[in-house]
Amino acid sequence: MTWSLLGHALEQGLVFGIMALGVYLTFQVLNFPDLSVDGTFPLGAAITAKIIFSGGHPLVAIMWAIIGGVLAGGLTAFFHTRLKFTNLLSGILTMTLLYSVNLRIMGKSNIPLLGKVTILDIVKSYFPFLSLDQLTPLLFLFIVLLVKVLLDYFLCTEVGMAVRATGDNEQMIRSLGVDTKITKIIGLCLSNGLVALSGSLFAQYSGFADVGMGIGTIVAGLASVIIGRSIFKDRGGIGWITISVIVGSIIYRATVMIALRYGYRLGFQPGDLKLISVILVVIALTFPLFRGRVKSIVASNGSNGTENK
């Protein structure tokens, strides 16, 4: 019982981990609070569901989902860099208009994919000796690690470094010859492409796409990034950070599932999910503060107050 719960948490944590990597790219690397992901996650799901439902190949569906996400990110970037809207407003505008776009794509508010051939079925046909329960986490692990390695590599290229520097010190990187409009466009497109990929995989995994499935994506993504970063606090390399984001995503999903499964004892209802996720973010954000305080108390007790810090 508990094992299958954790198994689901692992699978979902890996799928949403791709989304969390996208959120990490905008919020942390580019220092751009991009809210459009609440719209691009269901966009990826909607495009995928539509194509698979009409008999298209799942890989084609995934490809178009990514393209859709990239374009949505490009739109946010256009609002911000060309029309000079603030970063928050740019994301909100894209997120809001994507709600209508997603409805248009799907033609209705929900498309079920039960009985349709998804990427999971296709991969399973190559590994008939694995059960779906074994294959799903392995496939998602493979995809998320592939994304991680590619993202790590990109962030260490000349262009990727310029993107990082844009979030770190925009004036400085402009004076070194980088058009920061372009680096922002690159970052936003890439991030939203990843989020849409995550949405596409989630739709195929859960067997449906729904216009409302994007609500709170940004909070989940942020929670994953923050939880992960507070666990691997002192390690700084890009590779460590992206791993910690994925681990953070798994921990977040596990916590949410445990809260949903056993939370009724504390009086929680299924509708309280979003409330729980926000509480998790608040705890994760204040956790380093507490840790510092506990450490300093322990240290001052241990050394009998000889070291005052």
């Binding site: 290229t157 000349e158 990082r164 520097a165 400085m172 990187i173 004076s175 010859g177 980088v178």
Partner: peptide, 30 residues
Amino acid sequence: PLLGTAPSMTIEENLALSIKRFGRGLHLGL
């Protein structure tokens, strides 16, 4: 002094950023 460097990047990464002023590509910066 805070304006001229990217604080959360390493010394070698900062230097790598300054090596080209245009035509940055998709090969490793270091």
